[in-house]
Nucleic acid binder design. Sequence first.
DNA 1: AATTAATTTAAACAAACGTTTGATTTCATG
DNA 2: CATGAAATCAAACGTTTGTTTAAATTAATT
Lengths: 210, 210
Amino acid sequence: MGQQTTKKRIMDVAEQLFATRGVSGTSIRNITSRAKVNLAAVHYHFGSKESVLEAVVSRRLVPLTAERSALLDEYERQSKGEAVELPKIIEALVGPALRLSRSSEKGGEYFMRLLGRLVMEPDAKIQRILTDHFRLSLEKFKPPLEKALPHLKPADFFWRVHFLVGAMVHTMADSERIQIVSDGICNPDDTEGTVKRLVSFISAGMEADT
Amino acid sequence: MGQQTTKKRIMDVAEQLFATRGVSGTSIRNITSRAKVNLAAVHYHFGSKESVLEAVVSRRLVPLTAERSALLDEYERQSKGEAVELPKIIEALVGPALRLSRSSEKGGEYFMRLLGRLVMEPDAKIQRILTDHFRLSLEKFKPPLEKALPHLKPADFFWRVHFLVGAMVHTMADSERIQIVSDGICNPDDTEGTVKRLVSFISAGMEADT
DNA sequence: AATTAATTTAAACAAACGTTTGATTTCATG
DNA sequence: CATGAAATCAAACGTTTGTTTAAATTAATT
């Protein structure tokens, strides 16, 4: 053991600290002391601070992209040649991410907050990491989306995908504000309720008259 | 002179660096060297790094909130007692912010990117600053929004405002990604086109069937 | 049990961090 | 032109930063 445990402990703590204090706001010493691991372990196992970030992101984003893809495949199978209904497509895109962000396995919550931060990061390296993952989902979802929205001009299509991403990322990354702003009326722990609401909001927005 | 110029130069540079590198990713030395100002000037004029952030945020957010409010007032005057149409309300909320984020006076662009970052920041002090400003807009816009959406239950109402904020913040903060993702098809410099698209997306989302 | 490889460890490195200090320069007012 | 306040300055403070090194320990292989 050792190997497995140390590496995972570093990633778990890094995920949490990157999410709550930001990447540059988190020092390697913050990570190693909380993970109860030697300071040099980070460089031994990852090589650099940035490589830790890359590992943390890929660990969750790879399975997430796969899950989205599989869910869309299933919906396409169910529709038997017919175009998949728009809400189904949106649900395949939004559902897995939102469920991860609310998973009882705490990592998901921190990860999605981290992702919300990283999306706003102009740093070229970070953007390349995110774009590489995002492009996979976009390529997969673009054809069925276009089929479900045949009347949309290309520019309108991309703009609405942009708005979609904004609503999605904000909802996943920031589960506390809605509770504060709504004075406790909204419960972000009701994952399936949130998915339904988000899917209906986005679907209606995507289908709006131009 | 001196006073005015130095203080403004610090705020302008801080706004840009906070936006592009993050708050904790920006050192006071980064700011002062680029602003061509002595290192101690920051503490002389502001007292601390955090106070610089607070000044930078308030400088833009106070007039922005006022402009939103004035625009809504005008739309309410125009509708002469009738409920203001939903797209008008959304336009009063979204338009001024988006125009600021695309203003040729470069500051707006950086500021909105900074705002996008700060929204994702869990730090309590930063959240308090933002919430204080945001609450003013929410209190102003809540009554006409509820009047335009009388069928919405409170929980649905707040959730949709949450989605609205996500789409809006993401659009204002991240004007480069849409260009990359759309392969240049979408032009974020077409401010009024973007406002129209965003207003119609959000309006449709807010009015979706539950 | 001996040997090699894989980890972990404490210690050190220069560089950069936010903040403070006290002297010096610039400015407006008399 | 002198006086007092406001602003700028270079220098230094104790910490903390990411990274490296070489020795010590643990694990796996022969």
